[in-house]
Simulated assay, not measured.
Amino acid sequence: MKKLMFLSAAALMLAACATPPTYVGTALFAQTQQPVLATNATGTRVGRACATNVLGLLIQGDMSVETAKKNGRITQVASIDRDIKSYAIYSEVCTVVTGR
């Protein structure tokens, strides 16, 4: 029983390493969209750039605004948002750019 409790506690601590912070706090399971920037420009094109985190041990990806603009073929930015998905041991953070 002690071994199971120890393994559960260790798994919980490792899982907490993969959770990104949000405006509403940090949680083991989260899915939020957060505003970053809005301008007077308009546009219907959308570009995304994402990075992932596994157990807080492996983080990879390019979530830069420039990469999101390139992926959406955007030259004039209308808005920038952040899309966060976190599932205990895995999380993904994407920069979402809209514009034309």
Rank of each mutant, 00 (worst) to 15 (best):
Q76F: 05
T26G: 00
R73Y: 12
Q76I: 08
L57W: 06
G99S: 07
L12D: 01
R82C: 09
K70L: 11
Q31I: 04
T95I: 01
A15Q: 05
V36M: 09
A30Q: 02
R73H: 15
V65E: 14
S79R: 09
T32L: 10
L14F: 13
R45F: 02
L28E: 02
P20V: 05
F29D: 00
R82L: 07
L58N: 11
D62C: 09
A41I: 10
V96M: 03
C17V: 01
Q34G: 00
A38I: 11
K85N: 13
N71G: 08
A18F: 02
A68L: 10
L7Y: 15
M1W: 12
Y90A: 15
A78F: 07
L37E: 14
V77L: 10
K69P: 09
S64T: 12
A68W: 14
T19F: 00
I74W: 11
G25V: 00
Q33A: 10
V46Y: 12
V24P: 01
I74C: 05
R82W: 04
Q60P: 02
L4F: 15
G43M: 08
T19M: 11
Q76V: 15
Q33W: 13
T75R: 13
G61W: 10
V93C: 00
I74Q: 06
V54A: 12
L37S: 11
K69R: 15
G25Y: 01
V96I: 13
L28A: 08
R73A: 13
M13W: 09
K85H: 09
V97E: 03
A10G: 05
T44F: 03
A38D: 14
V24C: 01
T98D: 03
A16H: 03
V96L: 03
G43C: 05
E92L: 03
T52K: 10
T95F: 02
L28P: 05
A41M: 12
D83S: 08
C94Y: 00
K2T: 12
V54F: 12
G47I: 04
V93D: 01
T44G: 11
S79Y: 03
E92N: 06
T98Q: 07
M1N: 09
A68Q: 13
I89C: 12
A9Y: 04
S86T: 03
G72T: 08
L57T: 08
G47D: 10
V36D: 09
A27E: 08
Y23G: 06
